[in-house]
């Protein structure tokens, strides 16, 4: 009987130790929204025609809501495309009832990069005016203007099929 108790004790101890080890989290705030796949609610701005499913919305320690966008890259670097996506998400999330005050980009290592977001919706729309219009052009089925550049074209997956590639 003693053997069984000792074995169960050892197992529980090891289980607890490994559980602590492998479930260690790097979350900065409490999650209030998370993209878990198809069933996740789509946030939408009907006024501006923007839909999004941000990776996460967290309530930070100071009570402010922060929108988190995850990117599969090693180092925290913010590209204009990330900024446009995040700002568009903030506009949609705000109209869906989330009072977003901050926005961040998180990379694989868990490092986060703060993206400045204005409280003024007009300013945010100004920042994404060109890509928003371009995306609408594509949604209408029209051909948009290409923005070729050596650095972008080199890493573009459609380079072989693009007539404007450089």
């Amino acid at each position: 009987m003693d053997i069984v108790i000792v074995a169960i004790g050892v197992f529980l101890l090891l289980w607890l130790l490994t559980w602590r080890l492998v479930t260690e989290k790097t979350t900065y705030g409490k999650s209030v929204y998370m993209d878990r796949g198809y069933a996740t609610r789509v946030l939408e701005s009907r006024t501006h025609g923007i839909r999004c499913k941000p990776d996460s919305i967290e309530a930070m320690s100071d009570g402010e809501l922060a929108l988190i966008e995850l990117k599969n890259r090693a180092y925290p670097r913010l590209y204009p495309s990330d900024e446009a996506q995040i700002i568009a998400s903030v506009i949609a999330a705000r109209e869906s009832g989330f009072d977003i005050r901050r926005a961040m980009l998180e990379v694989c290592s868990g490092q986060r990069l703060e993206v400045p977001v204005s409280d003024d919706e007009g300013r945010l729309l100004e920042c994404i005016a060109a890509p928003l219009e371009a995306a609408r052009v594509v949604a209408r089925g029209e051909v948009p203007k290409a923005l070729p550049s050596r650095s972008k074209c080199r890493s573009c997956g459609f380079l072989n099929q693009c007539e404007f590639g450089v």
Partner: peptide
Amino acid sequence: VSVTASDIGQAARCPYAL
């Protein structure tokens, strides 16, 4: 017209690729 935030991000990079 309704578009996704992800499409807007991609359009910022290159609308033709989108």
